[in-house]
Design a protein around this nucleic acid. Structure first.
Lengths: 113, 113
DNA sequence: TATATTTGCAAGCATATACTTGCATAATGA
DNA sequence: TCATTATGCAAGTATATGCTTGCAAATATA
């Protein structure tokens, strides 16, 4: 049994998924995140550490505070893995395609970078 | 710490992901799956049990053999969760699109039903 | 400067997880 | 019928995981 630390394992924990959810909406410092949970600050701090290791989170130091920002590129790995089975659970392949077309068009003449 | 047994946790293990991969291609009995791995049959049997509990696998008994079939509807939960953050990793959009095109072409003139 | 705040690090603990070996059960086939 | 095959169940073990409490370091504030 080798110690894993990959994205799949990172998002396996519901607390970590919730943390991702919070910081995806807006960057938050460690204590603010910790306050939202019943467990200790240390417990949350460890979750954050794991998310950083998996590069799902990055830290911006601001004085003594550390702001956590979502950095979810690595989720692409999960997306791709799941997508390959989409035909198995829905045949919504076309739907997704439509969705991607829409997204792409939005990018092309939208408010993109 | 409550014992979890959800889809996210199920796919967190690389061995289980590989099992899903195998049976998604074709139904296989327990021993055939186990033979593909270095660990004991029991270890694989437990992984299969977990996948069954999460309804990612179903069993068709055939005599004394138990054939494992992929039943990946539950992966939709993961797909939906990841999709909500797609805007965060949109740069890889084209990659996925290319991938889906490939999949679609395979469907169109492949050995598909 | 003294105190409060934000945070990390370390040690310790209970439970979960992944694995093993041994044995039991049921179906198949000689 | 008896050996073989496919499989599950149970007990045991090592490591991982998620958590706690205590303490230290760095920054901010009175």
């Amino acid at each position: 049994m080798i110690q894993r630390r990959d994205v799949f394992q990172a998002i396996a924990d519901p607390t970590r998924r919730q943390i991702i959810n919070m910081v995806a909406a807006q960057p938050l410092n460690v204590n603010t995140i910790a306050d939202s949970f019943d467990v200790s600050r240390q417990a949350i701090s460890l979750h954050i550490k794991i998310l950083i290791e998996c590069e799902l989170l990055k830290i911006k130091k601001q004085g003594r505070e550390r702001y956590c920002e979502a950095q979810l590129d690595q989720l692409n790995e999960v997306a791709v893995w799941v997508e390959q089975y989409r035909q198995h659970f829905e045949s919504k392949l076309d739907n997704l395609e439509t969705y991607l077309d829409k997204l792409k068009k939005e990018r092309q003449h939208g408010k993109q970078h």
